Computed example of a mutant assay.
Amino acid sequence: MSLGSEWAPPGVDSTTASVARVHDALLGGTENFAVDRAIARRLKEAVPEVVNLVWCNRAFIGRVVDFLVREAGIRQIIDLGAGLPTIENTHEVAQFADPNVRVVYVDCDPMVEPHARAILNGNEHALAITEDARDAEAVLRHPRVARLIDFSQPVGLMAIGLLHLFSDKEDPHGLVKRYMAALPPGSYLAASNMLASVSPQAQALEAMLHVTMGTGHFRPRAEIERFFDGLVLEEPGVVHFPEWRPDERLPGPLATWEALLLGGVARKPA
């Protein structure tokens, strides 16, 4: 479904940029509008490495999902702020390991749900809902979520590439706690946030995100680690994305843009 003609599904404003669609444009996708592509260009002009950064984010998601299914034994996943499906999506990685893993995608962009339906193509173990991840109760009580997810069994909660979109006034730490409080012991949280830094790349990207998208809250390490309070961190802890269970040994020091991403995975104890 190419949007080159600027056709938009009902309820979608093609004149207002969306985080999901800007991300899609940075990945070279076609599910975006001129306004999204314009912002993607501005981000690349300000921080040329931003494309590498979003691909690094995708690779991290893939390794996390593979760990949750193959090693942690998780068989149901809720992916918050999932964005537009691209390649190596959560359900693809999870169901490659076990076809019966159930996956729910959550995003407030109304384009995500119809696009996901086309990608899922009748996949009875995966679905997408249009809901704001800020409203944990609405997400968890959504009737379609309730039909697919068994909340008496452990759940993998994904909040990767999402929390830096929320200001401190929106209390992202409290939001994570509300989600995890509703999930049973043995559930997992996979979360990340952009790392505050004195590097010119970090400051340029944060400033440009605020100018173009009105959001983008880089946080110090201690504030990112707080997302995992009360949980048991999996090795290697809260680290830069390339350092989290890499498929191959790291070739050397991190690139500057790789140092902008910090995340981890943790289990809810009994």
Rank of each mutant, 00 (worst) to 15 (best):
L260D: 09
I129E: 03
F67V: 01
L262I: 02
Y179V: 04
T215D: 12
H240G: 02
H164Q: 10
A94D: 01
G237L: 09
E113C: 10
A204R: 09
G156P: 08
I39W: 10
M158P: 03
L127M: 10
G264L: 04
N123R: 12
Q203H: 10
G237A: 03
G214F: 10
S187K: 05
C56G: 13
R37F: 00
A259L: 05
V69E: 07
L254P: 06
R41W: 05
D98S: 07
I129A: 08
V265Q: 04
P251V: 01
T90H: 08
F151M: 03
A136E: 06
N121D: 15
Q95G: 00
A116H: 09
Q203M: 14
A182W: 02
F60A: 02
R221C: 04
R144L: 13
L209R: 04
T130K: 09
R245A: 11
L148Y: 05
D79W: 03
Y188C: 05
D13M: 09
L175E: 12
D109V: 00
E248L: 13
A255S: 12
V232K: 13
V145T: 08
T256S: 14
E206F: 04
P10M: 01
G252M: 10
L195H: 05
S18K: 07
E248N: 11
A146D: 03
E124R: 13
V47L: 08
R141G: 13
G83Q: 07
R63S: 04
T16S: 13
L84M: 11
A116Q: 00
A59Q: 10
A196W: 06
H164I: 09
A133T: 09
A17E: 01
P143I: 14
A25I: 07
E258S: 00
M208E: 15
P185G: 14
G29P: 08
V198G: 14
A94N: 03
